[in-house]
Design a protein around this nucleic acid. Structure first.
Lengths: 179, 179
DNA sequence: CACCTCATGTAGACACCGACAACATACCCG
DNA sequence: CGGGTATGTTGTCGGTGTCTACATGAGGTG
């Protein structure tokens, strides 16, 4: 159906894609009726892959540890798939997300909320309101991925940002209080 | 020179801009030699304004309280200036940021790092490495602004996200441990 | 005043793009 | 066999960024 991320991309153009595949300029429109459709498909693909390499890979864990590994895995996925990550960062793409994409993201959020509950039952920040922890987690994951990948955020930190710093930052939030 | 944000925008086009101003299609190129130049100017404008309404407005504060107000102010600014915020979120724009823009951001980061030092001296997370706190702060601010403004992040939280939740989330990090 | 220069605006052209329509081809299934 | 569906092709349209050549006017200098 499609071989994505053929080259390091993101001046994506349907016509360039057609050229790359050696087909006529309008051929891609048979598969994606509009350019937004293509980006939708890429976003869905990216989200599926991201969830596959975070939530699924931590299925045997639970509670706080699972949350930490999920967050670390998310940042690592963003690092390893900058093209997909850029698509997911694009507000214009996500604003018109399909119902299926929204549903997938909601399922992912549900897992996070469930594990927050478990972690709280295990004594992690048990006095906090769960939705505040959830918002914090989501913001921290999204922001850490950006800091880890976007050159403009790397610049102000320059050499100061050592390899493990982002994981250490995630752990500031995702660790037991008595550690 | 320019009246920006004439309408709620971000299918920005030099020709549309020219039409809006009642000039010929190539006139804007006299002021911004390329479209990327225009976005650069917008980004610089946005960053200047953002810093003006956060760092400057908290000048009389210091340490932890200043950091908290800066973070809250940043999120509020993003909420109130979605168009500017979208420009600053765009990786393609920021990747080619001018030296002046980089310098401005670096100055902003310097203030944050200084206040982190002050806060640590006041007993806030004094055992942590400063750069880890800095990375955490930057990620949290960037992520919170996105969660606060991007519909795709609002959706999974739905009505669960109450007005004060994001501030409460920021406070999870930016508060004294004994509170 | 004459003259030059620079900033600004204009018109035209080019290549690229997304999208649409009309037509061709091939394949599957009743 | 025959028709429908999926896929691809060519051609076209309007829109866009950018370049070039040309106009015009303001300001300063001789």
């Amino acid at each position: 159906m499609k071989q994505l991320s053929t080259g390091g991309i993101e001046t994506l153009s349907l016509r360039a894609l057609a050229r790359e595949l050696g087909v006529s300029h309008a051929a891609p429109l048979r598969h994606f009726s509009t350019k937004a459709d293509l980006l939708q498909a890429l976003a869905m693909d990216g989200v599926t892959q991201m969830i596959g390499s975070t939530a699924a890979a931590t299925e045997e864990l639970c509670g706080l540890e699972r949350l930490r590994r999920m967050a670390e895995g998310y940042v690592e996925w963003a690092r390893n798939n900058p093209a997909y990550h850029m698509v997911l960062r694009n507000p214009d793409v996500m604003r018109h997300a399909s119902d299926a994409l929204r549903q997938t993201l909601e399922d992912f959020a549900r897992v996070q909320r469930k594990e927050i509950e478990v972690a709280q039952a295990q004594g992690w920040r048990s006095e906090e309101r769960p939705q505040v922890l959830f918002v914090h987690l989501v913001a921290l994951m999204a922001g850490s991925a950006i800091v880890a990948t976007d050159p403009i955020y790397k610049a102000p930190v320059a050499q100061l940002l050592q390899p493990g710093d982002i994981d250490a930052s995630l752990e500031l939030f995702l660790r037991m209080p008595e550690d």
